[in-house]
Each structure stands twice: as structure tokens, then as C-alpha cells.
Design a protein around this nucleic acid. Structure first.
Lengths: 141, 141
DNA sequence: TTTATTGTAATTGTAGCGGTTACAGATGGG
DNA sequence: CCCATCTGTAACCGCTACAATTACAATAAA
């Protein structure tokens, strides 16, 4: 999992609450990062159909769907592929020992399984849930 | 999640099948890494009570518990704390906007939740399961 | 035409991690 | 007792991944 997921989720939460077009600079300020990074992430969200974009003088980004229909799993799949990522693998497929030879595919499968668990959890939360959580007992701001 | 988990799980699977004391060099060869790294991991496994060690002339490492009682969650907690690890956080606690201020703790909680999902999954697999999986339809080797 | 914006590529700085070397301490064999 | 073999651990190197930054072409409204 990369921090791009956080940038994406935060940006979408911001766009949702704002309900209007926002520039990458405005979003970056709220997220606490730089506009170029926001734009890179927003490009992926656009490809996934989660935001609408508009270049030019009064451009910016805007939510493309109702917030209760966008889950964090959608957000994650828009910006990345693996949640639990470990690049290094032990053993080697061409060794005689079944343990040394089999551990690599075994771990691949295990990590697939962990990813599935996380994806299921992420699917349970929507942008609307986030807004509710952040503005609970605070009186609209 | 660090690759140390893989080194640990692979080493334990090897020790389990071997059923006898092994040196860090023998384990490292099977895992495909260097003995010092294996020793570093085994030290943590020893602290967690998963292996017994023996220094000296005929030393080495040995499983300390029956394989069906050791889950991958035990193994993970012995070598690391976080499964889904993202260090970067967005926003800032001292900003006025509830979104910018609240996103950090919100993400902390979300990642805790993802970790819990993964831990639950890891708890479902034991060293005995791994041995069965690797030696299935292969005839004992 | 000017200006604010997206889209994207190139580059840099940095932190984390795997690999390696080295050595002190332990322990049993001769 | 002395030596060989092993653990335990610290120190350092080098690579890779990623966040940050800069730059610029394309777009579109005023």
C-alpha cells in the first residue's frame, strides 16, 4: 500500500464535502502535499471514473459519483494493485527441496489472501461514512 | 510487513520438517539468504518462545513447540508489529478544517483495522498446515 | 491574448531494508 | 586446556522505492 491511497481518499473526502470544483493547489493545501502529486493521483482517479476534471482558466476536480456509492476499495484499486506488498521472496523454484522450491508460490498465495481480506474491509467504508465520521459531534463546518 | 516474516516462516517450516537442530548456515542455504540474517530473525523467534537455540560446537536452532500450535500470526508478531505499513500521513492535527485535522487519526484507525483483518487470516494457518501444503501429492521427501 | 489550470515527464533527496563483514561469547571435542 | 564451531550482535554498504520538486506543453475561459 502506497501513500497515494491516503492522498486519494483525503482528496475525495475533501471534494465530497466541498461539493464543487477544486484546483490541485487547494486540495494539496488541505492534504499537506504539493499540487503535482495531487494531480498525478487525480489522473488515476479520473481513469477509474471517480472524479471529473476540467482544465483551463476555471478548472479543477469534482466528484463524479454519489459519495455513498464510492467505497475505499474502489479508491484503492484506482491507485494501486497490492495492499500487502513484500517484494523479497525466499527459496528458489529450481531447488530440489520441496520447501525451498515451494515457499515462493506459497507466499504469493498467502499474500493474495491477505489482500483479499483487506479489500473486503475497505469495501465496507464509503466516502459518505468518512464525512460522517469526521464531522460527527462537531456541528457542520 | 517486512521480508523478515518470510525468512521466519520459511525457517520454521524447515526446522519443523527436519525435526532436529540446524545451523544458521544450513537454514540460510535453504531460504536463499545469508546466515547473519537468519540469526537475527531467529533471535526474535527465540524471544517469542518459538525456537530453542544452542550455541557452541554442536549448536543450532530447533522448534520449541508442536507445529500445529504455532500460527503464522504468532510468527508475525515475533518479528514485526505492523502488517499494512504506510508511514506518510496527510493533513495536520492543528489545522482548522475538520477533514485536514481528522484524516490522520482516521487513517491510523483504518490501518489498525486492516491489520486486525490480516492477523485473523494469519491465525488460521499453522506450521503443520504449511508442511502439509508443501508436501501434498509429492510423496515424502 | 493573457492567465489559471490540468497532465506528465524528469530529477533529486532520503529513508528503509537486504547483504556483508567482523568479532565477542558460548560450548563441546580432543 | 586449547581449538573448532556455532550463536548473538553491531557496524557499514548499496540498492530501491517513494515523496518532493521543477518544468513545460496543452487546454480553456475571461
Amino acid at each position: 500500500m502506497t501513500a497515494e491511497f491516503i492522498v486519494a481518499a483525503h482528496s475525495l473526502a475533501y471534494l465530497n464535502h466541498k461539493g464543487d470544483y477544486c484546483s490541485s493547489e487547494e486540495i494539496a493545501e488541505n492534504v499537506c502535499t504539493n499540487p503535482a502529486r495531487v494531480r498525478k493521483v487525480m489522473t488515476k482517479l479520473k481513469r477509474a471514473g471517480l472524479v471529473k476534471t476540467h482544465a483551463g482558466f476555471v478548472g479543477g476536480y469534482r466528484l463524479a459519483k454519489p459519495p455513498q456509492t464510492v467505497t475505499l476499495r474502489d479508491v484503492f484499486y484506482a491507485v494501486g494493485k497490492r495492499i500487502v506488498k513484500v517484494t523479497w521472496r525466499s527459496g528458489s523454484p529450481d531447488m530440489d527441496c520441496p520447501i525451498a522450491a515451494g515457499m515462493r508460490p506459497y507466499m504469493d498465495a498467502l499474500f493474495d489472501s491477505l489482500d483479499a481480506c483487506c479489500a473486503e474491509r475497505l469495501a465496507k467504508t464509503t466516502l459518505a461514512d468518512i464525512d460522517r465520521a469526521l464531522f460527527a459531534d462537531k456541528g457542520e463546518a
